[in-house]
Measured scan of single mutants.
Amino acid sequence: QWIQSKREDIVNQMTEACLNQSLDALLSRDLIMKEDYELVSTKPTRTSKVRQLLDTTDIQGEEFAKVIVQKLKDNKQMGLQ
């Protein structure tokens, strides 16, 4: 999976804004449970939030991952090649 192969780059480069947009999009599509949303959003640092989101992606699967990839594209953060 692309996200896993780029995990380190995503953790380093995903902005707080992109992270929040991803969470909002996942929530609005019922792809993330409120508990998982809280787990991510209550982490103390941006990098720990991104790591938690990516860990959740492993469990949730492809549809979940597609939303995150789309948000990275929207925010022009796909220089993660």
Score class of each variant (00 low, 15 high):
W2E: 06
W2F: 02
W2S: 06
I3F: 02
I3K: 00
Q4C: 01
Q4V: 02
Q4P: 00
Q4T: 15
Q4F: 11
Q4L: 11
S5E: 15
S5T: 08
R7F: 13
R7S: 07
R7V: 04
E8D: 14
E8T: 10
E8Q: 04
D9Q: 12
D9H: 08
V11D: 00
V11K: 02
Q13W: 01
Q13P: 01
T15W: 00
E16D: 14
E16Q: 05
A17L: 11
L19M: 09
L19V: 10
L19K: 01
L19N: 06
L19G: 05
Q21W: 00
Q21A: 15
S22V: 15
S22D: 07
D24G: 02
D24N: 03
A25Q: 07
A25P: 02
L26V: 03
L26R: 07
L26Y: 01
L27I: 08
L27Y: 13
L27S: 12
L27F: 08
L27K: 13
S28Q: 14
R29T: 06
R29E: 12
D30W: 00
L31A: 04
L31H: 06
M33I: 13
K34W: 10
K34I: 08
K34C: 11
E35Q: 10
D36A: 09
D36F: 01
D36L: 01
Y37E: 07
E38Q: 11
L39Y: 07
L39H: 12
V40F: 06
V40G: 02
V40M: 01
S41Y: 12
S41L: 14
T42H: 11
T42Q: 15
K43A: 12
K43C: 10
K43W: 00
K43Y: 00
K43H: 12
P44R: 09
T45L: 02
R46I: 14
S48V: 05
S48N: 01
K49F: 01
V50Y: 02
V50T: 05
V50H: 02
R51L: 10
R51P: 05
R51C: 09
L53N: 01
L53K: 08
L53P: 07
L53V: 04
L54K: 07
D55N: 08
D55R: 11
T56C: 12
T56S: 09
T56D: 01
T56I: 15
T57I: 14
T57R: 09
T57V: 14
T57E: 12
D58K: 10
D58L: 13
I59K: 15
Q60F: 07
G61F: 04
G61M: 00
E62L: 01
E63P: 07
E63F: 00
E63Q: 06
F64S: 10
K66Q: 12
K66W: 02
K66C: 08
K66S: 13
V67K: 04
V67G: 03
V67A: 03
I68T: 08
I68G: 06
V69I: 13
V69S: 04
Q70Y: 02
Q70M: 06
Q70A: 13
K71M: 12
K71W: 00
K71V: 15
L72Q: 06
L72N: 13
L72D: 01
L72C: 02
K73M: 12
K73W: 10
D74C: 10
D74M: 07
N75A: 09
N75P: 06
K76C: 14
K76V: 09
G79C: 13
G79R: 09
L80M: 08
